[in-house]
Design a binder for these strands. Structure first.
Length: 830
DNA sequence: ATACATACC
DNA sequence: TACTGGTATGTAT
């Protein structure tokens, strides 16, 4: 296996890259050195290394999960159901099914009527949450014996940190590890016989021989069974993790007559996967070694990982990624396509890294209630339902003594379209009237918006959040200095290993990189961020240096918006005919996706086969990094190309970027500058000279567009409003300001202006892609605030141009939601 | 702050 | 006939 014990993550990358070192332009160079440079200067690999270095295998995390919980409870209490396929839920929705029913394909989250079709004799039992809660309390008592700070996930599931328990357990007498079998007399299952601990003491009195207080470790490994003097069966559990967990499950079963499964692993993510492995009524331990972890991860389908759901699975699948090793393999691509948070998460998954500390149950952040119903179209009924919901909500709020400032109304219409409308008050509220006052307003507004048509609702919900009790506890915002010191993630992110430091509990910071130490973060950041900073920002930086690094797509998209605003509708007209060629880097990648598959195929079939290649576009894909065409329709080949370009690009940045790069290089171990060009199986050259010759004159026919290498700006969508706006704008004032460099152009000739913008844009983008600082922005440009997402885009200088700047978002941008994957790829998953 | 999407059970 | 309900979180604007 590639990621065996001996190989570092860097070598994984290296072995891929090594395939290329006999390519043109690379002969005669020190192979190892080059590979080392590639390895160390690749953004992705640096992150991998930082993560690797912070890997913590010292904790023993257990995930416990009751088997078919609701169904099991019902079966326990109604023996009639024992041999029947059954499920808990309703005709509209099932929440669990028993194992018998699962054989028919009956699953949780399946509507009951569908399940009935699969399994006509399915018995559907309505849920009894109070009972489940009671059982949950019982098992949680047991959990607490092993980890008082355990983290419940739901009624039937929890994460526990066994590390401390195991430490103590080593010196426990057998009596403390002895537990009795339930006596068979109480068949109802309602009562437990007695507390195991008490049983232990009692047992010791009865047969002291069995319980010498100095256990020899060899005897403790395995458990033993026996029958005490009173004829009661018991079991002695060993001291190792497996035994401790088995003991816990045993106790759960004795106490509740329900079985649980468990996973034992060095972190939460893995423990969760492990608990599924030997379900039902089993457990699985993943040893705490890197080798074992990597082996385990290798063929693990990404979908098994908590947090990677249906949507992410599909997107990944479309990129040919289904296992965690695929993930690891494609990280370079993923770092281009997804937001930082998203790909960092993927990276952690691909390395088998996860949370190693169990966060105590945190305070709730919101409370809500919602109801689905047939169809509700009368405003009056809608309002009274709204009131009801508010009453319910207020009641729940009262129970917990909470007050909140934000009220959110949720509506789903008969077409299943969901809308939320929120309003934040100046002070926290909790009563029915207070909540309803707001919710009613929100609802009325929606009703009015739709009138004279009625709102045809199938669901309504009311949520309250921004609890004042939470707000009070929130720490003050970090000072800028503190921020700079710890980097862009909160310092509490670096609490790994400090499991008893409860400080982080009061700080609801987002744990983006919970496993990276401050040092690792700093190392990474210096490398990552410095090159991305523009010269201007570098000068006046200080607090500004920590702007969130935008993803490739975000930057490209932002640029595109500016470009769209800067070009006339006349141009747009023609451009629409030529969607296949687009300048903006982001859309390049879109093109790669687009030309490889047609939307739905992409989803349905996963990885694109060459036969799906678009007919309208050539058999080549355009690399978003080097802009060359890669003569292939095979995504894997293409991805490899992108990988190479990326490492190429980052090599360039390390060697050519900012002033402090000298120190960075030292700290980061970057050995030398790479000079090789992005060598490939593609042809055309790229340089800014070509911009001139290939750019499109707005007044001439766009004949050469399809094949032009660096084409001019194009609008990918025909937003009519926008073109009108632009048009009118052009009519009004011929004063043209370049959206890239901010300089007013001394011309009213669109062609000239266009040429200028192209130069600005392409240079900028190219430089940015290489991690170079912008050469374009004039010193006069002021940098926007940290929070301004458009920071890479210069401020619009004159107010008169503000209209342009605020061009309406394209439909594409509207679609860029959810995981925050860039609009490009996002488009193909709807 | 608001809106929406994804995810989990 | 019929596809939930509650909560958290990430992203974009």
């Amino acid at each position: 296996m590639e990621d065996g014990a001996a190989s570092s993550t860097g070598e994984t990358f290296l072995s891929r890259m090594a395939l290329n070192d006999n390519k043109a332009g690379m002969e005669g160079l020190d192979k190892d050195k080059i590979n080392k440079i590639i390895m160390e200067s690749s953004k992705v690999e640096r992150v991998a290394l930082a993560l690797e270095r912070s890997r913590d295998l010292s904790r023993v995390i257990v995930h416990v999960d009751m088997d078919a919980f609701f169904a099991a409870v019902e079966m326990r209490d109604c023996p009639e159901l024992k041999d029947k396929p059954m499920a808990v839920g309703s005709m509209s929705m099932l929440s669990t099914s028993n194992y018998h029913a699962r054989k028919y394909g009956v699953r949780a989250a399946m509507p009951g009527f569908m399940a009935k079709k699969l399994c006509p004799y399915l018995v559907i039992v309505p849920p009894n949450f109070d009972k489940y809660r009671a059982v949950s309390d019982e098992i949680r008592e047991i959990f607490a014996d092993y980890d008082p700070d355990f983290q419940p996930v739901s009624l039937d599931e929890a994460y526990l940190d066994f590390t401390d328990h195991l430490l103590q357990r080593q010196s426990w007498p057998e009596s403390a590890r002895t537990h009795y079998f339930r006596t068979s007399s109480t068949a109802t299952g309602e009562q437990q016989i007695e507390k195991p601990q008490e049983a232990g003491t009692e047992l010791r009195d009865l047969s002291p021989v069995l319980f010498m207080d100095s256990p020899s470790s060899s005897l403790c490994l395995a458990g033993s069974q026996g029958i005490d003097g009173a004829g009661r069966a018991f079991e002695v559990f060993g001291t190792v993790v497996e035994e401790a967990v088995r003991e816990m499950r045993f106790r759960i079963e004795q106490k509740t007559m329900l079985t649980a499964s468990a996973g034992i692993a060095p972190n939460m993510m893995l423990a969760k996967v492990c608990s599924d492995k030997n379900k039902p009524n089993g457990q699985y331990r993943l040893p705490s070694t890197r080798e074992a972890v990597m082996d385990f991860i290798q063929d693990l389908p990404v979908r098994k990982v908590s947090g990677i759901g249906k949507v992410s699975e599909k997107m990944l699948k479309a990129l040919g990624i289904s296992s965690c090793s695929d993930l690891r393999q494609q990280m370079a691509l993923l770092s281009l396509l997804f937001s930082e948070t998203a790909w960092h998460n993927f990276m952690q998954v691909s390395l088998g890294i996860g949370f190693t500390y169990i966060r105590r149950h945190e305070e709730r952040k919101s409370m809500s209630t919602e109801r689905t119903f047939k169809e509700l179209s009368k405003a009056e009924e809608q309002l009274s339902l709204c009131r009801e919901l508010c009453e319910d909500l207020a009641e729940d709020m009262k129970k917990e003594g909470l007050k909140g400032k934000t009220i959110t109304l949720k509506l789903k219409n008969v077409n299943f379209e969901v809308k939320t409308r929120a309003m934040t008050l100046l002070y926290a509220v909790a009563t029915t009237e207070e909540i309803f006052a707001v919710a009613k307003d929100l609802l009325k507004t929606e009703i009015e918006n739709e009138s004279p048509q009625p709102l045809r609702l199938r669901l309504m919900g009311v949520r309250i959040s921004a609890f004042s009790s939470l707000d009070d506890k929130k720490p003050l915002q970090k000072s800028i200095i503190g921020f700079l010191q710890t980097g862009k993630t909160d310092s509490s992110d670096a609490t790994q290993g400090r499991h008893h430091n409860k400080e982080h509990l009061s700080n609801p910071a987002i744990h983006i990189w919970p496993f990276i130490t401050v040092d690792a973060m700093q190392m990474c950041q210096k490398q990552e961020e410095v090159p991305w900073r523009s010269k201007q920002r570098g000068l006046e930086q200080g607090q500004n240096s920590k702007e969130p690094p935008q993803s490739f797509f975000q930057r490209a998209h932002a640029k595109r918006l500016h470009l769209q605003a800067a070009h006339s509708s006349a141009q747009e007209e023609r451009l629409k005919e030529n969607v296949s060629e687009i300048t903006s880097t982001g859309t390049r990648v879109q093109k790669f996706v687009e030309s490889s598959a047609k939307t739905s195929d992409f989803l349905e079939n996963g990885i694109v086969s060459p036969t799906h290649a678009s007919t309208s576009v050539s058999q080549s894909l355009t690399c978003p990094v080097c802009f060359r065409q890669v003569e292939t329709t095979n995504l894997n080949v293409f991805n490899r190309h992108i990988d190479r370009c990326l490492s190429d690009a980052s090599r360039n940045h390390d060697s050519e970027s900012d002033l402090d790069s000298e120190t960075n290089r030292e700290e980061c171990g970057v050995v030398d500058k790479g000079r090789e060009k992005c060598e490939v199986e593609e042809k055309k050259p790229k340089n800014s000279e070509n911009l001139e010759s290939n750019r499109v004159d707005p007044c001439s026919a766009p004949h050469s567009m399809k094949n032009d290498y660096i084409p001019t700006v194009m609008l990918i969508n025909g937003d009519d409003k926008m073109s009108q706006q632009l048009q009118s704008h052009n009519v009004k004032g011929p004063v043209l300001t370049c959206p890239v460099c901010q300089l007013t152009q001394d011309t009213d000739d669109l062609a000239v202006f266009n040429r200028h913008v192209d130069l600005c844009l392409n240079k900028d983008v190219l430089h940015e892609l290489r991690g170079q600082t912008s050469l374009i922005n004039p010193p006069s440009v002021t940098k926007s605030k940290d929070t301004d997402r458009g920071h890479l885009l210069p401020r619009q200088a004159s107010k008169g141009k503000s209209k342009r700047r605020q061009s309406p978002p394209s439909p594409l941008s509207k679609r860029a939601r959810g995981l925050g994957h860039p609009n490009t790829i996002d488009k193909f998953f709807r």
